[in-house]
Amino acid sequence: MPGADGTAMDRAINEIEGFLLWEAEKDRARIRAEAFCAGLPWLTDSQRREVELHYCRDQRDATWAYLERIAVRSATLRTEYEGVYRALRRRLITVFLSGTVAVAALVTVAVAGMAVR
């Protein structure tokens, strides 16, 4: 089954991408924490490390909450768009079938008109 392999591969790629993005976010949080602490020169080394750890933890928690909100919103939008797509598809099929019936009726009338002559 080629589709099943593709789906598994897609999931694996998504997981790897998610892992790499999360690691990059942790690095950004660490860099921001170091920059924040650089503006507090009176901190001792142990205080600086504690502030950096707290800052990173807080930043990761905020990022995680943000990502969860985005995931929920994405799922909501997907459901909404799939509903709109199904409705549009039904309309298009209805218009196509109506047009086909109309053309068939016109052809039938034209053929019948020619047969009468």
Rank of each mutant, 00 (worst) to 15 (best):
R86Y: 11
W64E: 15
Q59K: 07
R78A: 14
L53R: 14
W64I: 11
A71G: 03
I31D: 14
R60W: 12
E68C: 07
R49K: 11
A29N: 01
A71V: 00
V72Y: 03
E34I: 04
E23V: 06
E25K: 08
R48W: 03
D45P: 04
Y85L: 15
L77D: 13
Y55V: 01
A33W: 04
R48C: 03
E34M: 03
L43A: 01
R69W: 04
A71K: 06
A24M: 09
R32E: 15
F19V: 10
T76E: 15
F19I: 10
T44Y: 11
E17R: 09
K26Q: 11
A65R: 08
A24L: 12
L40W: 05
T44G: 12
L77C: 09
R69Q: 07
E82Q: 13
R90T: 02
I93S: 06
R49H: 07
I31G: 04
I93W: 05
A71W: 02
I93L: 10
F36M: 12
A71N: 01
R49A: 11
A38F: 09
G18E: 02
E25Y: 05
F36D: 14
R69P: 00
A62S: 08
R91N: 10
A35H: 03
R91V: 05
I70L: 06
L40A: 09
G83S: 14
E82F: 08
G39S: 06
D45E: 14
L77S: 10
D45G: 06
C56D: 06
A29L: 01
E68S: 01
F19K: 11
A38W: 11
A71M: 00
R60F: 12
E34C: 04
R89I: 07
Q47D: 09
R78D: 14
W64S: 12
E52C: 04
R89P: 00
H54D: 15
E23G: 07
L21S: 11
R30A: 12
L43E: 00
D27W: 05
A35K: 10
W64M: 14
V51R: 07
E50N: 08
R49Q: 10
G83T: 13
R90K: 07
T79M: 13
R28F: 05
